[in-house]
């Protein structure tokens, strides 16, 4: 039951109508992070349609999607795969103890030149 609610939540806050997808794969044809993804952008749309939320939540792709919006821009059906990916990522980080980066790991990752913008955006994407 819980999964069903989770699925409908993710669908709702993705803010996009995945049923409009015509399975053309243009999103995946355009994606710059494609080769760094285990589940591809078009599969986020089709698997959400099928209700397979668990598989998506475990995917590596939610951390490698760049939110560059190329897929959203080019979808001929007005579907927004990046928004589905973000909704799944939110579903993951909104769970307790599921943050992707921990504050204590940061010092090791940064150097003099790193802009604040990078830290803030990474935290916004990966943590809750």
């Amino acid at each position: 039951m819980e999964d069903k609610y989770l699925l409908s939540d993710v669908k709702r806050y993705s803010g996009t109508d995945t049923s409009a997808c015509m399975r053309c794969g243009k999103c995946s044809g355009r994606c710059p992070a494609y080769n760094d993804m285990d589940i591809k952008p078009h599969q986020f749309v089709t698997l959400i349609e099928r209700g397979d939320i668990e598989k998506l939540m475990q995917s590596k792709s939610i951390w490698t999607c760049l939110s560059c919006m190329a897929c959203v821009e080019r979808c001929p059906r007005n579907v927004a795969p990046a928004q589905v990916i973000e909704a799944v990522r939110d579903a993951v980080v909104r769970q307790q103890y599921a943050n992707k980066i921990k504050a204590e790991d940061i010092p090791a990752k940064i150097d003099e030149t790193i802009p604040q913008q990078l830290l803030v955006s990474a935290f916004r994407k990966y943590n809750k």
Binding site: A33, D36, W63, T64, L66, C68, A70, I114, L118
Partner: peptide, 19 residues
């Protein structure tokens, strides 16, 4: 108008390097 790798460079610098 391609992506530079954005915030992913914090955790996966290799991706941003490629982009």
């Amino acid at each position: 108008n391609e992506c530079c790798g954005a915030y992913v460079s914090l955790d996966e610098p290799a991706i941003s390097k490629k982009k």
